[in-house]
Design a protein around this nucleic acid. Sequence first.
DNA 1: AAAAAAC
Length: 498
Amino acid sequence: MSALEAKLGVPKKKGEEKPTAEKLERARREKVNHFRNQQKIYIEGTDLPEPIATFEQLRDQYKIHPKIMQNIEAAGFQYPTPIQMQAIPVMLHDRELLACAPTGSGKTLAFSVPILVHLKQPMNKGFRALIISPTRELASQTHRELVKLSEGTGFRIHMIHKAAEAAKKFGPKSSRKFDILVTTPNRLIYLLKQDPPAIDLARIEWLVVDESDKLFEDGKTGFRDQLATIFLACTSPLVKRAMFSATFAHDVEQWCKLNLDNVISVSIGARNSAAETVDQELLFVGSETGKLLAMRDLVKKGFMPPVLVFVQSIERAKELFHELIYEGINVDIIHADRTQQQRENVVQSFRSGKIWVLICTALLARGIDFKGVNMVLNYDFPSSAVEYIHRIGRTGRAGRTGRAITFFTEDDKPLLRSIASVIQRAGCPVPDYIKHFHKLQSKQKKKMIKKPLEREHILTSPRFLQRKAKRKGIISQKGVKKGKAKNNNAHLQTVPEK
DNA sequence: AAAAAAC
């Protein structure tokens, strides 16, 4: 008897009248519902596959490759998380899916396992599974996870590094020795639009859209059209699609209900809520200058690295970087204006602990799993509750605890209430006077999002300090870090002892 | 609207 059957099975009691098949079925359904409620698994749809309670059930019921089973154990995953309990069987029953589960609750494994089980073994047919991510950093991380999970099975998992190289590698003349592709949208579209197309998605059987609400963003510069092009290129009648995110968007749900085949919707816990493992705090800092003072105060009081600091724009990221470089802490910066190589180096150095404080834009807000980030600092107020949830979700992952501090000024009042609500719902204290703020109408919120705050510049350090830094080689003439060590310039961030 | 996303 499997563990789930032990949990879900109907106990036979002596002297009880012989249960009819219907009664058994009803009791079983009740047990399943109870289990789902216990795990805060909320599910909608018809013919719903039962959740699993242990990974062993993948061996007993779904014939998982023993190597993958071993890799799951070796990676230290003892029990499936709620999203894994439900999403894995849903996908293994070939059912299309809309999934919403908190940050850091194991969504990557929840779609990676069923993809690998579904594909059974490597084949030389070309790509049979495709995962789309909004940033290269997230694609790279997902790629790495899949490689780790499939070690010893021979599956070939690819990322597109240079589109030109990829065209040769994956084109019609290639030997088709690949199984799974993880990519950001535009690189893939570039390959699709070659004449003849440099990649063939006609054999894709699983298409996973990670951070689906981000990739469904509409408008002239949104991802949505790119996603549509990719959907259309997956022409196999066998193709199934799954959408994953930590936040729930109604337009995604609507789209799924209209376009997916008998879609199942799975949500874990309350939708659009922050991870309960994050200790959240709002801090009034008065003004822009107040932010810098409060930041310096945090540094001085001694804080626990690694720390992620979020700002609103690339420009502000640069400004803040130039302020903090003088603090004697290992600080670095990442945003989309940096080169691919710089981005990779920074992520690598932050992962390895060489960088203590990483200043970033929304680039790192979603999906990125840095082990043990102790604090997220929202230096600039997030532009929506959704962005807030993703940002602070970089800490408090996989059951660990984390801390998030969010600076706010008078200017941030309009969105304060909606973010305070998220904090309150997560059980963290919110000052009374904020609770009494009037709620912004959704119309006004949209306006806020469309026209974000124009903030004062971050105070610039006195000139003499900059000249001093230049002499010491901390920053170059242009005020940008020197990149003389091509591959690893992390050590340049350390301000020499005085 | 910002940020992200190809060569």
